[in-house]
Design a protein around this nucleic acid. Structure first.
Lengths: 123, 123, 123, 123
DNA sequence: GTGGTCTAGACCACA
DNA sequence: GTGGTCTAGACCACC
């Protein structure tokens, strides 16, 4: 896995799993891979996976059936809200960062559309 | 100063000074406040300031005249490029994050447009 | 350790470790001694070691696995290039210095050849 | 002037003047430029020039005639010895550095001749 | 145990 | 006064 060395691995794991849930790769009510399997999949210490899953459980995005495994919440609305909330947060902080750079909202939209201020195209 | 407790202070200092350079609060070729003065201003240890400025010097955004002080690069193009580069990076990672959330480009633009005047987002 | 009092310790540490890498005393991909251990070995403060290793990391000669240690780059070509580059730099600056002294290339070669076995020079 | 930011300016001034003496740009017994003129020439503080000249005077490479100026030593042998001594020192430390890099004397001579080990040519 | 950050404080060379 | 180096020591998150 290509983990960013500057943020804790467990946070990056949380993010990956959240995205998987949001994108429906784990269905609502569906069973997660086991801690050991996830550890192998992402090549990290099982403790790290456990820590990530604990936090997701605290956020009630997943729940544990003892002796049976961990499952995605059945609450589809919760999942949808999570998605919207994350999108809003991303958008707000993006707009704020651009503003801090001294870039107007109008210019920002040009960046979004893929055009520099000077007319060239962004990759 | 209101430092975010989750990211190292020196990185936040770097960001502040970069924005100050981009916004022209430090002019190209202009002298920075001294290490000690900045330390007092931001209420941190001079070593922390030194670390931040070292990194900015590695990025060639500032340079040092020994026994005289530290100065913003005279290369105005470099400063302009920095601004554009930062804007592009912000935009790219924003778009990528939204995509990872499973949000289409069209939807993303709605989030952007949905911004209220007070910076919040309309769903 | 026998540090030269006129150059910063961290630069001398950098040089030692670079030579160790070049000479294969640390293998490509191999683990470095821990910061604390190196500090004990060279009898300096861990911060001084950290500073040196930071610079080596910026030069991409070593990399860090968080909570695991620091490792020599796996890129053997990079290491070989480093050796060649250092040799070229040494040679170029030596030749330039001799030239600045007003010593011809022909004379310079006599100085080189005049070396005794014990490393001293025959006039 | 292009001073190296890592070594004191007065040492760099000393080096320049020594080279000028060795190369005969200042003749034995000849008058040096005044402190003020040198300060203007090299765009440094007159104190820095004074410090450099003091050291050269301690090494008896120059001498002062009160109210008249500073002069290069009349001792031509001393100047010649200085040149040889510097050449030997340069050569010795160059050879030692190459050896520390793990480069044999034979290879070193190839570098001098401008050929890499792999047959390509050095610029 | 690993590295990373930060502080307080000292000392230095230089201009 | 300027920046640079170094130390001692503390605290932290992570694995």
């Amino acid at each position: 896995m290509n983990f960013d060395n500057n943020t804790p691995i467990y946070l990056q794991i949380i993010r990956i799993i959240k995205l998987d849930i949001i994108k429906g790769e784990y269905k609502p009510g569906g069973k997660l891979l086991s801690v050991r399997t996830l550890a192998l999949k992402y090549k990290v210490n099982p403790n790290t996976i456990a820590k990530a899953l604990n936090i997701l459980e605290n956020e009630e995005l997943i729940y544990t059936e003892r002796t049976n495994g961990k499952f995605v919440t059945k609450d589809e609305k919760k999942i949808k809200n999570l998605k919207i909330e994350m999108a809003i947060n991303l958008t707000n902080s993006y707009l704020k960062d651009m503003e801090n750079l001294g870039i107007s909202f109008k210019e920002t939209k040009k960046y979004i559309e893929g055009r520099y201020d000077d007319g060239t195209i962004r990759m």
